[in-house]
Structure formats: structure tokens, C-alpha cells
């Protein structure tokens, strides 16, 4: 089953075409890496898929809903985590989870069980009553991810989730992502760490608003005769002619 289907998705701002007719599908339970240089149009594309901005033309179905006409349904069925972790620093761990569970309409009687389950999965039970601001960065990030999937969305969008996090925490974070996909959640992720691209089932690389390549990391490396994804990226991004955002 396809969780994300994009067909000729285009966004223009005035004369500038930020996203130029991109098409791709993401399967259920897949980790899809969305790569590209700064200003290549990643954020705009992601915002369209999340129902935050309307595409100029083209079609998009996310979690079974049309991103143009049913953006509210789209929002209810996706999770989103940005680089600036969208959790409240001055609330406790469980208060954050409770709050977002409430926002996404999880019935009251289920909330406590759900929170306990999530805390357990993270090994966070002892930190339940800790204020978020006193948590180390790596933990905050994991908590932000839990908050993003508290309502068991079909797909979760992660916008550069691992910037600045220490290497060990970053890997633990990816274990969390793997676990989510094991339970059927689809993961759509942008990153500047090229070796994280290797963890994805498939990656797409955007250059100047277009998708220049899309395949599994292994196939991409074969195709571009590269040792690593970093090399693939450099070979592709060199084509960029864009100077501004």
C-alpha cells in the first residue's frame, strides 16, 4: 500500500519554482530519505505533503487523503517533528505526552495506558516527572519523536531530526525509527548526515526543485559508481545552478 503518492507536485512562489513537478511513492512501513542541498526545495515539498501549503499544481495523497482538498484529514493522520523539537520545555515528560495525546484526540481512558507504553518503550519510566528542559539533548529528541507518533499516525515526517546530537544518541534515535517502522509507521526523513541516508530503505535526492535520483542507497551507489552516499550526493548536487533560496 502506498502511504504517500505525489504526482507532478509543483510549487511556485511568483516566478520562482521552488518545487518542480516531483513524483514519487512511499510504501507503508518504509523509511524514505529526502535529501537535497539547502534551498533545493525539500522544506517546501515537505510542507505541501503535510497539508501546510497548497501546491500550485499536481496531486498528492498522504495517508489516504488529498493534500489539496482534505488537508485537515491529512494533518490528523501524520506526525511531524522538526529540528526545533516541538515539545514544551517547561512541562514534564508525561505532561507533554498527555498534552499531545489530547490534541490528537486519543480518548481519555486510553491516554494513560498509551503514555505508559510509550515511556516503557523508551526506557523513560524513571524520567516521567522530569522537566523536559533538564533532559539531555538526545533524550529530548527521542521524546519529540514519541510525541510525534503518540497518536499512531500512518506516516511521520522528520525534518533534520538529528542535528547536533551526539553520535551514540543519534544511533539510538535511529533504532527508535526502526522500531516505529516495524509497527507499520512510515517514516519520511530529511537529513544532512549522508551516512544516515544509508539507513533509509530508499532515498531521493533533490537538486534545484527536481528529484534527480531515487532508489535504494545500494543501487544509487552502484549507479553512480560511488563508495558512499556522500559521494553520490556530491556528484548530483554539483549540477545545481541555484544560488538563492
Amino acid at each position: 500500500m502506498q502511504v504517500i503518492e505525489a504526482e507532478n507536485l509543483t510549487k511556485r512562489f511568483g516566478k520562482f519554482t521552488a518545487v518542480d513537478s516531483i513524483s514519487f511513492d512511499v510504501k507503508e512501513g518504509e523509511i524514505f530519505g529526502f535529501l537535497g542541498a539547502n534551498g533545493a526545495g525539500k522544506t517546501t515539498a515537505m510542507r505541501m505533503l503535510c497539508g501546510l501549503i497548497k501546491p500550485t499544481s499536481g496531486q498528492g495523497i498522504v495517508a489516504g487523503y488529498d493534500i489539496k482538498k482534505q488537508s485537515e484529514n491529512v494533518k490528523a493522520n501524520i506526525g511531524y517533528m522538526s529540528q526545533r523539537f516541538s515539545i514544551y520545555e517547561d512541562l514534564k515528560v508525561w505532561e507533554n505526552l498527555r498534552l499531545f495525546a489530547g490534541i490528537y484526540g486519543i480518548p481519555n481512558r486510553k491516554i494513560n495506558d498509551r503514555i505508559d507504553e510509550l515511556l516503557k518503550r523508551l526506557g523513560f519510566e524513571s524520567e516521567k516527572d522530569t522537566l523536559v528542559k533538564s533532559l539531555p539533548l538526545g533524550w529530548k529528541q527521542k521524546l519529540a519523536f514519541l510525541v510525534a507518533i503518540v497518536h499512531e499516525p500512518k506516516v511521520v515526517f522528520l525534518d533534520e531530526p538529528t542535528g547536533g546530537v551526539d553520535p551514540a544518541s543519534r544511533r539510538q534515535f535511529w533504532e527508535l525509527i526502526y522500531e516505529a517502522t516495524d509497527r507499520g509507521i512510515t517514516v519520511f526523513v530529511t537529513t544532512h548526515y549522508m551516512e544516515e541516508a544509508e539507513y533509509c530503505n530508499r532515498v531521493s535526492i533533490m537538486v534545484d526543485g527536481r528529484i534527480e535520483a531515487m532508489d535504494s542507497p545500494r543501487n544509487l551507489k552502484n549507479k553512480f559508481e560511488a563508495e558512499s552516499m556522500d559521494e553520490v550526493f556530491h556528484k548530483l548536487a554539483r549540477k545545481s545552478t541555484r544560488t538563492g533560496d
Binding site: 529540528q83 547536533g164 556530491h234
Partner: peptide, 12 residues
């Protein structure tokens, strides 16, 4: 941290 949040090409 001049390279935080910067893509690999600009970093290079």
C-alpha cells in the same frame, strides 16, 4: 559550528 544545518556541498 559554521556547518550546522548546512548541506554537504556547502560544507565542503
Amino acid at each position: 559550528e559554521p556547518t550546522t544545518g548546512v548541506d554537504p556541498v556547502s560544507r565542503k
